[in-house]
Computed example of a mutant assay.
Amino acid sequence: MTATIRSVNAGSLESVPGVRHPSGIRKRPVDRIEVRDPGPKHGGLGSGVVDDAIGSRKHHGGETQAVYAVAREELDLWGKELGRDLPDGMFGENLTTSGLDVDDAEVGERWRVGLTLLEVCGPRVPCATFAAHMGEPKWVRRFAEHGRTGAYLAVREAGVIERDDPIEVVHRPGHGLTVPMFFRAAMGDKELAEVFLDARVLPQVEHDWLASRR
């Protein structure tokens, strides 16, 4: 099966019941998105998707969280468990993929999507805004225990991404350290965190963040 972009999604700032500040988590399919390197989390442009809103730049956005990708297959699995339809963009993702196991990606893996080049940087960490948006009991714990979070991507070559664009994995590092493994390290697996730190496979900002949690 050819890996493709099923949907490209963006959002504007909106209120979320139970959340104090407006959020851009409610993403909706659009015809196309333009992606670029937004620079650092603090003082940069926020989202790597032009005209895509981020409510809290303290925790979201920046170079290593420029674009968020989730597999349609993962949304379908959750939909069956929750007993509800989950539309493309429901997890706040900018890219809903088809035919690609996003959560099998290694940190540092690179994808050619249309004319853009994206690099896998790490997992999405669930937060209270995500839980409020989903409206499911104990959502943060359930999502974290499942451990397949989708992947945050950096933009290494800017451009436009459209629905049905092919996704080609043009580089896989081969170290075997995947996004779910990074998530476990981030969630407190100290032995796994040391593996990542010793391997020095993370972008510097993510390496420094993980080291600070020792």
Rank of each mutant, 00 (worst) to 15 (best):
A105I: 02
A186W: 14
P126W: 05
V160Y: 08
L95G: 01
D208P: 03
R141E: 14
T116C: 14
A131G: 03
C121S: 15
L192H: 09
A154Y: 01
V205R: 12
A186M: 14
E93L: 13
L77N: 08
W78I: 07
P87T: 10
D164K: 05
P180W: 08
L210N: 10
A128P: 00
E162N: 12
E119M: 15
R184E: 14
L77P: 00
A144L: 11
D198L: 12
P137V: 04
E162K: 15
A199T: 07
A185M: 05
P137Q: 01
V169Y: 01
A131D: 03
D76W: 04
A128V: 10
A105M: 15
E162P: 01
P87C: 12
G150N: 00
G150E: 00
E119G: 09
L202A: 06
R84P: 02
T129W: 07
G150R: 00
G159E: 03
M134A: 13
V102R: 02
R200P: 00
L192G: 04
A158M: 08
A211T: 08
T149W: 02
V113M: 05
L210D: 10
H146M: 06
V140F: 04
P87I: 12
V170P: 05
L197G: 03
E109T: 15
R172C: 09
E206W: 04
E136S: 02
E136M: 08
G188V: 05
A185C: 06
A199C: 11
T178C: 08
L177I: 09
I167F: 14
T96D: 06
G99C: 04
R184P: 02
F143I: 08
F91Q: 08
E136P: 01
L100Y: 13
G150Q: 00
R156G: 05
E168P: 01
L86A: 10
G176M: 09
F143C: 02
D103C: 09
G147W: 06
R148H: 11
D76F: 07
W209R: 15
Q204R: 15
V160H: 11
I167N: 09
I167H: 06
A105E: 03
P87F: 10
P173V: 11
F130T: 00
V125I: 15
P173L: 12
D85T: 12
V120E: 05
Y152A: 05
G114E: 11
V201M: 13
F182C: 09
G79F: 07
L153R: 03
L86K: 07
K138M: 11
C121F: 03
V125A: 13
D104C: 06
L202W: 03
L118H: 00
V160R: 10
K80M: 14
V160P: 05
G99P: 01
H133L: 01
M181S: 00
C127I: 13
T97G: 11
C121N: 10
A132S: 13
E162H: 10
P180G: 05
W111A: 04
P203A: 13
E136N: 03
C127G: 14
L202C: 05
W139M: 12
H133A: 06
G92P: 02
V205W: 01
A131Y: 04
L192D: 07
H175Y: 03
A128T: 08
I167C: 12
A193M: 12
V102I: 15
R184M: 04
